[in-house]
Computed example of a mutant assay.
Amino acid sequence: MTENCLIFLQTKEWLKLNELLSDENNCKELATDPIFSIFETNLINEVRRYENNGDENLSTVLARIFQLSQNLEILKLSDNCILELAEYLFEKHPSEQYAKVLTENIDAQNFLKNKNIERTEKIEKTILASNLNVKIGASGELDFSKSIFNSPQEKELYLASRRILKSEILLPNIALSSIINSKVIELLKRQTKTFFFQSTLDLCIVDSETFKPKFFIELDSSWHDKPKQIENDRMKDEIFEKAGMELHRLRKKENRSMEEVFELYITKNYVC
């Protein structure tokens, strides 16, 4: 059997060699033949000689030999022979089974990393597809997105709070109806009821364990001196009073950055 392998190898009759190796009984006979080591040595030489000719029949034979050694464990090949086979086959037909053998080959290891990433992404997509019905709306050319802050002062307040309250949830410009139970309207006048559903709060600090709103801050300015705004502020104060929640109104006295001042106020008044 080994002699036939050597003859087919020397005459480059790859199809006949592949046919011989396709029979596992022949392979088991080869594995017990001490002359097989000669075949292995010549095989490596043939790989080196024909590695650039693109002969697919040779690739088929080598893939079969690799399978018999690594997957079926019928043929016992030397480590050097296995590396030669894997190098040749990976270059022609990159796959994980060859890359796993080539632990010192950078291209092969990068190939494995990319395959793992692809596999993870595929699993994640399968999980999402099986659990979520996703529909993403169309997006026009115009962009009407805006900052979550309506003034620089609101941003200063938020940043100051975030620095000292790292574990709490901060909600800027949150609707009153999101943090106050709507049952409160039963205690309000008609105009104040309407205002309740239209109004927001500059900053609400939420307990990260109970997820309940805990501290409420409203920023005042010269804008709040206008008659209409004075009335709105009155209604907002009434809502918080009826809801049993303290509203902290802050108004800066000087035209300068207030982050440090806000930080000091929250540190002194927020009860963790």
Rank of each mutant, 00 (worst) to 15 (best):
A99Y: 06
E40C: 06
F144P: 03
H224E: 02
T126Y: 14
F144D: 07
R119M: 12
M235N: 05
D79G: 15
Y50K: 08
E218L: 04
T267P: 01
K189Q: 15
A138I: 15
V61L: 07
L203E: 04
I230M: 08
E186W: 06
S95K: 08
N110I: 06
M235K: 06
C81P: 03
N57M: 12
E124S: 12
S257Q: 09
L170P: 00
L30D: 02
E254A: 12
K16C: 05
L250N: 00
A160P: 11
I7W: 13
K12R: 13
V261R: 09
L188V: 06
Q97T: 04
I239P: 00
E118N: 12
H248N: 15
S145D: 07
N110H: 13
I185F: 03
I266R: 00
S167D: 14
P34A: 07
L112K: 10
S199C: 08
V134T: 07
A86L: 13
L170F: 06
L43V: 05
K253H: 09
N4M: 09
L21T: 05
E104I: 08
K268N: 12
V61M: 09
N110E: 13
L20H: 05
E87N: 11
I164W: 04
E40N: 09
S222G: 11
S130L: 14
E186A: 11
N71D: 11
V134P: 01
E104V: 08
S178D: 14
I185Q: 01
Q109Y: 01
K166W: 13
K214D: 04
N45T: 06
V271G: 15
R251K: 09
I164G: 09
I239H: 00
I65V: 14
A99P: 03
K242C: 02
N80T: 14
L176W: 11
W14Y: 07
T267K: 14
K228S: 10
K193W: 05
L72D: 15
L142Q: 14
Q153S: 10
P34N: 10
Q153G: 01
T210L: 10
E168A: 14
K193L: 00
E241T: 11
E46D: 12
E260W: 12
F197M: 12
P94Q: 06
R163D: 15
F39S: 01
E19M: 10
H224P: 02
Y50A: 10
K146M: 12
D233F: 10
L171Q: 09
L176E: 08
N80W: 06
W223F: 14
R163P: 10
L219Q: 00
R249Q: 03
S139C: 15
L15M: 09
N255I: 13
L85Q: 11
I266M: 04
M245A: 14
S208P: 15
L176Q: 05
T194I: 09
T192M: 07
E91W: 11
K226G: 03
V47R: 07
A243R: 02
L188D: 03
S147Y: 08
C5A: 11
K212A: 06
E46P: 01
